[in-house]
Design a protein around this nucleic acid. Structure first.
Lengths: 219, 219
DNA sequence: CGTTATCTTGACCGTCGTCAAACAGGGTGG
DNA sequence: CCACCCTGTTTGACGACGGTCAAGATAACG
């Protein structure tokens, strides 16, 4: 159970990791850097996420994980977890489940980056955050604190920081969101979902249908 | 053990599948379609791939799988596989391993589509095919039969068919590849890897180092 | 052979990237 | 308390990579 500062690496590409970390609180992101030096954010981890299953069963890490905010993480030794999976099939099934949901999110990200324009990409990623946070009880009402800079948002959507800024302003001007600093508020949740071509199916959130996609603002 | 025609669906988005299919021979691809009607190919399955672990442990499919060529597939009942995983931890570990490798490839695809220009994207995907096919003993020498049309290649790379065509011609003009119909030959394998920013690490192919990245053409 | 899918090519255009500068906030230290 | 950064956000002017539209060439296939 360690507390680490924002920017700290939990894993580096090329590492041969010995522990599996779980995010207790705070945020992190997976990233890869191209030969040209461009960065792509591959996933954002939120509190409660296990971030090292990849490295638990694969030998060398193919990407890096870095903290977005000051966070506390718990660390489980690699072989302890492996033994646990072998001793307790139910744990194995849980790992499989978690991994498959992550893969589903990755698939949606490929679509997002590959086939949607900038406006839809940003709308989509905002919707995804909102729903994921809400599903863990981390979002209060119809707003949430976006834990990333516009530059990181750009790296997550395959855009440039400049363009992210412009598009965010457009979404705001259109009355879909409003924001003060990094706090994003959903003014028209349904319209934002439409713009972002968002459906929560790919998140595979248990509990069947959303009780309410977002607590307010969609009646 | 069934034989199905090209274009046949193995899974449809929204399905609640009852079987897990394994590709015995032939090729398939995973796809998602946006609200705008644009298609994104999310992964390409080659002979030997299990294509339904996602649906084995998740309830409703978040994407479709379609055959690229006439293929034969074996089908395992869903609950049989689930019971097997619970009875035999080693099987569970194997499923986890497979799933994690697939996720790693997905991460690389996000990078490919998000942060590389058209030329690098295509070079990269060609390298990936070559190495994956070779690792299963399916590629002979320094050439292989690309099982997809340029339109499908476009959907896999987030480009348009027109642009794919242009870029392929550029790669050819640069002396990196040569092609007759869908047969792609690697004229300068090392240069192609450089252009595509390709490293086989993310494929997590066992057997440590490549005996030879490509049999010929890289001495 | 005709019919259809795929590939190829050209002209034009738009979304998004690049470059660069100005403008907050939010710490820190004098 | 007020310079002074430093990081992050905001804006503008301009350019390019890749998209769109459309036509023609080339296979594959029945």
């Amino acid at each position: 159970m360690r507390k680490l500062d924002a920017g700290a690496y939990l894993v580096r590409e090329g590492d041969v990791p010995t522990h599996c970390a779980v995010l207790i609180n705070g945020f992190a992101y997976r990233q890869k850097v191209t030969g040209e030096g461009a960065r792509q954010i591959i996933a954002v981890c939120i509190p409660g996420d296990a971030i090292d299953f990849q490295n638990m069963f694969l030998d060398v890490s193919d990407h890096s994980v870095q903290l977005l905010t000051r966070s506390t993480v718990a660390e489980i030794p690699r072989d302890a977890l492996q033994q646990l999976v072998e001793a307790r099939p139910a744990v194995g099934v849980a790992v499989i489940h978690t991994t498959l949901v992550e893969a589903s999110i990755l698939r949606e990200w490929v679509v997002n980056v590959g086939r949607r324009d900038a406006r839809a990409r940003l709308a989509h990623i905002l919707c995804e955050f909102a729903v994921r946070l809400e599903s863990r009880g981390l979002a209060k009402g119809d707003a949430f604190e976006l834990p990333m800079t516009q530059e990181q948002l750009a790296d997550a959507t395959g855009l440039t920081p400049v363009h992210v800024n412009r598009v965010l302003k457009i979404l705001e001007a259109e009355g879909l969101i409003s924001r003060q600093r990094r706090n994003v508020q959903f003014v028209d949740w349904r319209a934002l979902q439409d713009v972002g071509d968002f459906s929560r199916r790919y998140l595979h959130i248990p509990g069947g249908e959303p009780v309410r996609a977002r607590p307010s603002a969609d009646a």
